[in-house]
Design a protein around this nucleic acid. Structure first.
Length: 414
RNA sequence: GCUGGUAUGGUCUAGUGGUUAUGAUGAGGGAUUGUGGUUCCUUCGACUCGAGUUCAAUUCUCGGUGCCGGCCCCA
């Protein structure tokens, strides 16, 4: 009898876990370089918080993991990292602007499909207390840096919730949410089906033509020059241009599912597959949770999906440092040498089982080491170490000295 | 929540209404006691679960569950 992971959840083992760590480590570095601080919140929240109207909306409510504890309290697992942040911000006096990142697992009870899991990791950054579009801009800069670190080219499409709402209002007043849902699917189902869906709801399908053209001049003609949403979009486009963020583009079709957004919304895409991140401005969430009215912009990157993509691309992580094998000397001697190297900053792993040299090589290779250090009687006697570069097969016996070893390890070839 | 397909060791796979259910790969141990990803030996390890049909079910039927997709929704 063995046990499986629960539906829609998975283990990451060995090098697979290293790939995810690689993503997270790079993101942390980028976040830190902009002054974001880490934040931890529990996976379990009160159900009321998660289900609050201003947070989830009816659709995602169905996806909340819900349960009662032994004290009959109604609880749920977080479905994103923004709602917990909203709780934190509404119940603490944070120094503004407050910038934090959180890389954590979130849970959604939906049907597992391609790149869709019930437990998945997000890396989320948020800026609280900044009303200007500079917050949105910074979020784009962070996005650029994060994807660059992973060697991926993102495409960010954005829209303004305000603009979209104004536009829809002029076609179908009072049914904004419904129409938004349909338009959001434009990419997927195409123009004709989209119109068909609107006709079924007895809504003027003319809006689809406007959306497809994606022409801001034409939109201006409909919602008027004074439109707040329009200004927002134009200003943000100008900012992106100034900063050479050419991966950011306007799309009047983008809506996004979560209901807390109030301004600019983003979605991050790659050439293929579902989106790998998204976010936007949500200036009302914190006050809806009983806090002060607080401007807020955030974005989250889908770590689990990015993991899938790196994995599909054949990405491999490698082990830093050396794997130490013994050529006839007791393992405890190796442990001592390894220990002293480590205090000098050289990462190393000792073959604790003291297997044969050939087994040691095989093990090191499979685990992803680039170098094997061999210690035998000669090396002990001369205070040296023989290091072999596994990739090119060359080896050298050098002094047991941190700088000499580092020099060898940093040599790429020859 | 709706819907299609599928289910054999960790992974990939052969096969069958009836003896001990293939093969590969993998993992553990060993053969070569200072040089790897080669070879050889050895060990470990599977018919998704339940009900039904049947003398007999891994095999056929139905249902549950998982997995792979599509819709809804979404990172």
């Amino acid at each position: 009898m063995t046990f499986q992971t629960v539906r829609g959840m998975r283990d990451l083992i060995g090098q697979d876990a290293c790939i995810q760590e690689f993503i997270e480590a790079n993101f942390r570095e980028v976040f830190a370089s902009y002054g974001y601080l880490p934040q931890y919140t529990p996976a379990v929240e009160n159900f009321d918080l998660l289900a609050a109207k201003s947070a989830a909306g009816e659709e995602i409510k169905k996806e909340i993991y819900y349960f009662k504890d032994k004290g009959d309290r109604e609880l749920g697992l977080r479905f994103d990292l923004t709602v917990p942040l909203g709780r934190v911000a509404s119940s603490n006096q944070l120094k503004m602007p407050y910038k934090r990142y959180q890389i954590d697992e979130v849970y959604r009870y939906d049907r597992p499909q391609a790149k869709r899991y019930r437990a998945f990791k997000q890396a989320d950054i948020d800026i609280l207390g900044v009303k200007g579009l500079e917050a949105e801009l910074e979020v784009m800069l962070v996005t650029r840096d994060c994807f660059e670190k992973l060697g991926l080219k993102p495409r960010v499409v954005f829209n303004s919730r305000k603009l979209l709402e104004e536009l829809i209002t002029s076609f179908a007043k009072g049914r904004e949410i419904e129409v938004m849902r349909v338009l959001d699917k434009l990419d997927k189902v195409g123009e004709t089906d989209c119109k068909e869906m609107l006709k079924e709801k007895e809504i003027d399908a003319g809006i689809v033509d406007i959306i497809v053209k994606n022409d801001l001049e034409e939109i201006k003609g409909i919602i008027g020059e004074a439109s707040e949403g329009l200004k927002e979009v134009n200003d943000f486009l100008a900012l992106c241009k100034e900063n050479e963020l050419d991966f950011v583009e306007f799309s009047s079709a983008l809506a996004r599912g979560l209901e807390y957004y109030t301004g600019i919304v983003f979605e991050i895409k790659l050439d293929e597959g579902p989106s790998v991140g998204g976010g936007g401005r949500y200036d009302k969430l914190i006050s809806n949770y009983g806090g002060q009215e607080t401007a807020a912009v955030g974005i989250s990157f889908g770590v689990s999906r990015l993991y899938d993509i790196l994995k599909e691309n054949g990405f491999k992580t490698s082990m830093e440092g050396l794997f130490l094998v013994s050529a006839g000397v007791p393992v405890k001697e190796l442990v001592k040498i390894g220990d002293s190297l480590r205090t000098k900053g050289i990462y190393n792993e000792t073959d604790l089982n003291g297997k044969s040299i050939s087994k040691g090589f095989e093990f090191a290779e499979k685990k992803g080491y680039g170098f094997v250090g061999i210690i035998g009687e000669n090396e002990i006697k001369d205070k040296t170490i023989t290091i072999k570069n596994l990739k090119i097969g060359k080896q050298e016996t050098i002094e047991l000295d941190a700088s000499k070893i580092n020099e060898f390890l940093s040599r790429k070839d020859a």
